[in-house]
Computed example of a mutant assay.
Amino acid sequence: MIRFSAIALTAALASTSVFAQSMEVIKNGTHDGFMGPDDKFTGSAYIEPVFANEDPFVVNGGKVTFLPGARSHWHTHPAGQVLVVTDGAGWVQEEGQEKQLMEPGDVVWCPPGVKHWHGATDTTAVTHIAIQQVENGENVTWMEAVTDEQFGGETP
């Protein structure tokens, strides 16, 4: 679970020029989506960029929809990742642990450097918002594919 300190957030925002700027609404569909490449995903994963790493924020986010059987490859994030599940049902797994079911409203926190994967179940699609902090210009390190055996097919 992630907890944000209102005092820390206010102090961080006050130290930037955020309060001197105007609000901006980025319209849905502004950024072109794309299919997840085969060297990072197995199956059909559609990625829609939501927001980019731009000053003063050091995070980026995207909406990812996995069709049944689709999943990311194993990967890590240098500064961690938050997944907010918005639709469907999927699985998430940390290396060496049992996979876990994730459903709408669930928030998944993956700490920095923890090897994991996430995606649909074998029978259901899932959509989540993925938010990653950028550290030294990087937000993810991709690794090997999740095998069919690792993916399995039984709902936990």
Rank of each mutant, 00 (worst) to 15 (best):
G80Q: 07
V134H: 06
H31W: 13
P56C: 11
E138C: 04
E98G: 04
E135R: 12
P37N: 13
G113P: 04
A145Q: 08
P104L: 11
T10W: 15
F4T: 09
I131Y: 04
H118Q: 07
M23N: 12
A120I: 11
G69Y: 03
A6L: 09
V50C: 13
D55N: 14
H118T: 01
E144M: 02
Q21I: 12
P78Q: 08
A8C: 14
D122I: 11
D87H: 07
D32R: 05
T127R: 05
H77D: 10
E138G: 07
F57S: 07
T10D: 15
T65A: 01
L13R: 12
F66R: 02
L101W: 14
F4Q: 05
E103G: 09
G43Y: 09
P49V: 14
D87S: 06
D87F: 07
K115F: 09
M23G: 08
F41H: 00
D106H: 10
T147S: 09
V85Y: 01
C110I: 15
W142I: 12
G153H: 13
E94K: 12
K40Y: 07
W142T: 03
F4S: 02
F151A: 09
E54Q: 14
V82P: 02
K40E: 05
I131R: 01
F41K: 03
G33W: 06
Q132V: 15
A6E: 10
D32C: 07
V140M: 06
D39L: 13
P104R: 09
D122G: 05
E103V: 13
F34G: 00
G33E: 06
V108I: 14
V59E: 03
P156S: 05
R3M: 10
I7W: 13
H118P: 00
I129R: 00
C110E: 10
E54S: 15
H73V: 13
P37V: 13
A20I: 14
A89F: 02
I7F: 15
F57G: 05
H118R: 00
V108S: 03
A79H: 04
I129G: 01
V50H: 10
P68C: 02
T42W: 06
V58D: 07
